[in-house]
Design a protein around this nucleic acid. Structure first.
Length: 602
DNA sequence: ACAATAGAG
DNA sequence: GGCTCTATTGT
């Protein structure tokens, strides 16, 4: 794809500086005009942009408050966001609400939105009760979506990857190249030999758009720029154009939505992310190739994406190292011997190389979870049902909301995860039944079945059980194609079946497999509403499917129509061997497994 | 398909 | 620390 044939010769220059790779490549017309500037293009321009104290900013905007006010977002006793003005008082996310108020008596404290059973939607209350409410982050998800929409509108040619609720990667390579060719027509005049190096690059006026990471940080601290900055390269020019575009996006987001953001702009995702924290808030930083060694070498490597966890710890202990520079003494071979073939990714990243793509992801999440730590642990299964309903109604609400943008959304599976005391959590999942109306009751019924399987019933559960955490969620969420027969009616219409008169008088429906009548577990009053009926049917259907499941296992096809049991969920092999205890890495034959898995496949 | 775990914000 | 979310691995 790249690599001009004569690369070998020309590369002899000072390409690799002090262990850093490919810091000063020779830029040619071939590089610039390549059809697709891929991940190896030396002209790549990547940014990481994140919102400053995002949750705090969301509340500031929602309440139309002065941006200079010190503000924190409270979640029960704790803080989940601290605005930059509040940080000036020494308040950090680790503080308790008390300490924060002590440090700043005029602090604006906003409790995050909460939700309880029966609420039509999450709401903002000054003193929600953790015994009855669960936190809702939905407002922040919506604001996040608005920001991404502005990104897409302002820079339609850039690739945008939403990386989290408050962060996005942007690949500016294509729009930057277009601007470069427009602005410097000389670059559009391609010589016969594509491998001809480009003429010298012009000086760059960085203006006050960006903070430019200095090439020699120590010298700069000592006094005003004692070291001459290396001559600008065409890649630096490209970065400066990327910076212009980034500034434009940030300006639009600020003007339209009120959020300030900080960005890092560099040659790849990992460096973009790392440089974004160079100057915050409401700022953007450019990391030129020439500045990479000085910036990276003293950096704590555990600040690097994917090195913040167990792998980073393992590296630190194995080599008694803490900075990127410390790890430069480790050869690729040595690292691969200890940490597996895949660790080449680490070796490269320590030298400023990262070929991972910025790839557009669907805006839609594939999963949707609602969870609650139980301040009063649940000691018998029947008490848990209440929380299940809270979580289920929140999920139903959120799925409905998601369908406003994307009709036809349906989850493949429903998952229940519970944790007891200090024990490792356990999860149960199953296909999510298809039903006409997605109501909280439908979700709840499905959840309750998993709950019975997982923790049992009042009769079967251990007396001393203490469930401390419940999570209910959907996974495999996707829009069912229009190809599916009769799907439209399922989604578009919520007042459902009988616009033409009587609700069908049957109390049940036929199983498509065995033809048996499936009836609600309990007799329903004749005037019951559709939603309740639907939910009851879902419960019944799940039980019936369970029965088929057991029958199938016993290889006795249900031909006639024996009446399926309405209770007693089947026992299934619970093979939860918890071998996961010790944090030690076990060695297998060749590869040091347990470490290899830390590396994302590139 | 299901269950568990790591990692990030 | 609480609440999400994604991805990967192993069965």
């Amino acid at each position: 794809m790249l690599s001009p044939s004569r690369k070998g010769k020309e590369k002899a220059v000072d390409n690799d500086v002090d262990g850093f790779l490919d810091i000063n490549p020779i830029l040619t017309y071939r590089h610039l005009h390549a059809k697709n500037p891929g991940v190896r293009s030396p002209f790549r321009v990547v940014a990481l942009c994140d919102s400053d104290a995002f949750y705090a900013a969301c509340e500031r905007v929602r309440l139309k408050l002065d941006p200079e006010l010190p503000l924190v977002v409270q979640q029960w006793d704790a803080l989940i966001a601290v605005s930059y003005p509040a940080r000036k008082f020494g308040i950090s996310r680790m503080d308790k609400i008390r300490d924060a108020k002590q440090k700043c008596p005029d602090l604006v404290v906003v409790h995050v939105a909460t939700f309880r059973e029966g609420d039509p939607e999450p709401g903002y209350w000054p003193n929600p009760n953790t015994l009855t409410h669960k936190v809702s982050l939905d407002h922040y998800r919506r604001e996040s979506a608005k920001i991404i929409a502005v990104f897409k509108e302002i820079i339609p040619e850039a690739e945008i990857e939403k990386a989290s609720i408050d962060e996005a990667f942007v690949d500016f390579s294509i729009p930057v190249r277009n601007t470069l060719l427009e602005r410097y027509p000389i670059l559009a005049e391609v010589p016969e030999d594509l491998d001809t190096p480009l003429p010298p690059a012009p000086a760059i006026d960085w203006g006050d758009l960006s903070a430019v990471v200095p090439v020699n940080p120590e010298a700069d601290e000592a006094g005003p720029s004692t070291t001459p900055e290396p001559a600008p390269t065409w890649h630096d020019v490209a970065l400066s154009i990327g910076a212009e575009l980034m500034a434009k996006v940030r300006k639009e987001v600020l003007e339209r939505l009120g959020y300030t953001m900080s960005a890092g702009i560099s040659r790849n995702k990992f460096l973009a992310k790392l440089s974004a924290s160079y100057k915050k808030p409401n700022s953007q930083s450019v990391l030129r190739n020439a500045a990479i060694p000085g910036y990276l070498r003293p950096m704590q490597f555990r600040k690097i994406r994917f090195l913040g966890g167990k792998l980073g710890k393992a590296l630190a202990e194995e080599y008694d190292a803490s900075t990127v520079g410390d790890l430069h003494t480790i050869s690729l071979d040595e690292m691969q011997r200890k940490f597996g073939e895949e660790s080449v990714w680490v070796w490269e990243v320590l030298r400023g190389i990262d070929r991972s793509e910025v790839k557009e992801k669907s805006v839609l999440n594939k999963s949707m979870l609602a969870s609650k730590n139980l301040p009063r642990p649940v000691t018998k299964p029947s008490e848990g049902i209440h929380w299940l309903r809270v979580l289920a109604s929140e999920l139903a609400l959120r799925l409905h909301e998601a369908r406003e943008t994307t009709p036809g959304l349906w989850p493949k599976t429903i998952v229940l995860h519970t944790r007891r005391g200090w024990q490792a959590g356990r999860s149960r999942q199953q296909a999510f039944p298809f039903s006409r109306n997605l109501t909280a009751d439908v979700v709840s019924s499905a959840g309750e079945k998993l709950w019975r399987e997982s923790v049992g019933t009042d009769a079967t559960a251990p007396k001393d059980m203490k469930v401390t955490h419940i999570m209910l969620g959907f996974s495999g969420i996707a829009a069912l194609g229009a190809g599916q027969a009769g799907i439209e009616g399922f989604f578009t219409n919520s007042n459902s079946n009988s616009t033409n008169g009587e609700p069908s008088d049957n109390q049940g429906e036929k199983c498509t497999r065995c033809g048996a009548q499936i009836k609600p577990l309990q007799e329903l009053p004749s005037d019951v509403d559709d939603e309740t009926r639907e939910a009851a049917m879902v419960g019944a259907r799940l039980e019936h499917e369970d029965w088929h499941f057991a029958k199938d296992l016993a290889r006795q096809p249900p031909t006639s129509s024996p009446s399926p049991p309405h209770s007693s969920p089947k026992k299934r092999k619970s093979s939860s061997s918890s071998d996961a205890g010790n944090g030690k890495v076990k060695k297998r034959k060749k590869e040091p497994v347990g470490i290899a898995k830390y590396f994302a496949k590139k």
